[in-house]
Design a protein around this nucleic acid. Structure first.
Length: 568
RNA sequence: CGGAGCGUGGCGCAGUUUGGUAGCGCACCUGUUUUGGGAACAGGGGGUCGAAGGUUCAAAUCCUUUCGCUCCGACCA
């Protein structure tokens, strides 16, 4: 492609709306433009990258035996009501009506549509297993779109759905997808780690996320430093923490703690360590009041709590509900004597001896509180967020917390959709059985952003060769006739050899060309200028390493292909 | 949904406190000179100051409403 003809509006300055490197660079390097928050146009260069990624993913999917199709963006409300997700996914969906007043939504995901498709066609066990996938734009009305294409309201996703006769088959399909995903991500030149994950709104049992480690990641992941354990903190559990010791229980006592409300204030005031305090959180789970107890130095894992309660939504209690349900006083709430609400506690709370809690009385706390002796709870369960340094649940090693960008997610759905939507087949005995499903997603557009987060410097993007929009950029410096001639020839010869090449034939000064080449991140830059051409030489520079080479004119095409072969 | 900040030419910003009829840098157009890391000079085009309403002789500036964008939060009662 000749850059004199390319629609490539690069920006010298960073647009004010962009905060993270990938967002800034995608705008600056002319990969995309914003229409509105979380909605973007991909420009020619950006679209090429998207297509490269799609192609790598497509190949991995096809190799795994999955088949590509394309489903609609417009979904009917009936379909989503069948699965029960019209309400559940609710506000995340863009809903609308046609002229006749019929309800629709724009597809945020396609479990409903595939299930409806397949239930009409699959009759026999002989039709299974089956894996169908598509690469398509998804629409979700995110609460808060951010970081450019990283969390958009419209994004390109590869989604696949597997259909099996039984759970054994599902295990196989799931494993095949897991392997295909690892292949796809490394095929894109990305470092990705698979971690155990919560299943969230999709439902189902087992689930893994594929994470690109990056500072700006929205997810936090716990890794063991000595074994392979890795899990999203939403899901991660710590190993045995050990109890606080074998201290004797002392007599319950009320102490005056004027104005000391937070854990920090109370521990300082009373001179006790936070681990010995019991933090009491008043919450509404789908409107039902719950008191949750966790150790003072821990944080509540809402996902674990919501899963246990089967609740859709957890909200903090407002003043009115606080008075109505808890009969306590803000800042001094505690489980002792609490009645009429469910009380749940984290496992660590059970081990607290002579702890501290609010006394349900303004400006008073209780000390020497002992679980079971002084209060009882409905259940003790794991409700905390794991912390850096916690013991690994598998091997006892140390857990480390890092940020990651979720670029892929696979789920064992089971019969969640086949059951609610009636997708069945007949087995060998002529008996009707539910199809067992799995669902598998890759965020194509997000993956591009993640790749940039992982591969950039202060000058711009450094594309992994496999997803670079072009492999080589030829900078023709100046309007010297010989320079133009040599550049054109090299450009044609590289193209003839199948090398995707940009020719910077714009009437720009050298500095502009150098800077744009760095910004758009083409892996190999070839500079042709009158100066070195006098000696029959051109110059090559590897974007990632900065390595520079002089190349003899005669052997240039071969040398360039050679260099390309060995860079990443 | 709560809090904070911001909307002024394509981009980045100043001007708003104290009302007087819009400015800087980049980009763009023309010409001349330049040409190996974002050129110099000269000339030029482009803005209903997010929108609507109000106050005023006069509004980018004050008041009201509204829309949009960004960030933080929506566990620690």
């Amino acid at each position: 492609m000749r850059m004199s003809n390319l629609y490539l509006p690069t920006l010298k300055e960073t647009p004010a709306e962009a905060e993270v490197p990938s967002h800034q660079l995608m705008l600056r390097a002319g990969l995309m433009r914003t229409l509105t928050a979380g909605v973007y146009t991909y420009l020619p260069l950006g679209w090429r990258v998207i297509r490269k990624v799609e192609e790598i993913v497509r190949q991995a999917m096809d190799e795994s035996g999955a088949q590509e199709l394309l489903m609609p963006v417009i979904h009917t409300a009936e379909l989503w009501k069948e699965s029960g997700r019209w309400e559940q996914f609710g506000p995340q969906m863009i809903k609308f009506q046609d002229r006749k007043g019929r309800d629709y939504c724009l597809g945020p995901t396609h479990e409903e549509v595939v299930t409806a498709l397949v239930r009409g066609e699959i009759r026999s066990y002989k039709d299974l297993p089956l894996n169908l996938y598509q690469i398509q734009t998804k629409v979700r009305d995110e609460i808060r779109p951010r970081f450019g294409v990283m969390r958009g309201r419209e994004f390109i996703m590869k989604d696949a759905y597997s259909f099996d006769r039984d759970y054994e088959g599902l295990d196989k399909s799931y494993r095949a997808m897991y392997d295909a995903y690892m292949k796809a991500f490394s095929g894109c030149g990305l470092e990705v780690r698979a971690v155990e994950a919560d299943t969230g709104a999709m439902g189902g049992s087992e689930s893994h996320e594929f994470m690109v480690l990056a500072e700006v990641g929205e997810d936090r992941i716990a890794f063991c430093d000595s074994c392979s354990y890795a899990a999203n903190v939403e899901k991660a559990v710590a190993g045995e923490m050990g109890s606080t010791g074998s201290e004797e229980m002392k007599e319950l006592e009320e102490v005056h703690t004027p104005g000391q409300k937070t854990i920090e204030e109370v521990t300082e005031f009373l001179g006790v360590e936070p681990a010995r305090t019991i933090k009491s959180l008043a919450l509404l789970a789908d409107g039902e009041p719950v008191l949750v107890l966790i150790a003072g130095d821990d944080q509540l894992n809402e996902v674990k709590l919501a899963n246990y309660l089967g609740a859709n939504e957890l909200t903090a209690v407002d003043d009115e509900d606080f008075d109505k349900y808890y009969h306590s006083t803000a800042g001094f709430i505690g489980p002792v004597g609490m009645e009429g609400v469910r009380i749940l506690a984290d496992l660590r709370v059970r081990d607290i001896v002579n702890g501290v809690t609010g006394a349900n009385k303004t400006d008073y706390h209780l000390i020497n509180v002992n679980p079971e002796r002084d209060f009882t709870v409905e259940d003790y369960l794991d409700l905390r967020i794991v912390k850096d340094g916690d013991p690994c649940p598998k091997c006892g090693g140390r857990l480390e917390i890092k940020s990651g960008i979720e670029v892929g997610h696979i789920f064992k759905l089971g019969t969640r959709y086949s059951e609610s939507m009636g997708a069945t087949y007949l087995d060998e005995n002529g008996k009707e059985q539910l199809i067992v499903m799995g669902s598998y997603g890759i965020g194509i557009s997000r993956l591009v952003a993640a790749a940039i987060e992982q591969n950039h410097d202060e000058k711009g993007i450094i594309w992994p060769k496999v997803i670079a929009p072009y492999q080589v950029i030829i900078l023709a410096l100046g309007e010297d006739e010989e320079v133009v001639k040599v550049s054109e020839e090299l450009y044609r010869e590289l193209a003839a050899r199948g090398v995707e090449t940009l020719l910077d034939d714009r009437k720009e000064r050298p500095g502009v060309k150098f800077n744009d080449a760095d910004l758009i991140g083409i892996p190999l830059r070839i500079t042709i200028g009158a100066r070195s051409l006098k000696n029959n030489l051109i110059e090559a520079r590897v974007r990632r390493t900065g390595e520079e080479m002089q190349i003899g004119l005669e052997e240039s095409v071969e040398r360039i292909i050679e260099i390309l072969d060995r860079i990443e």
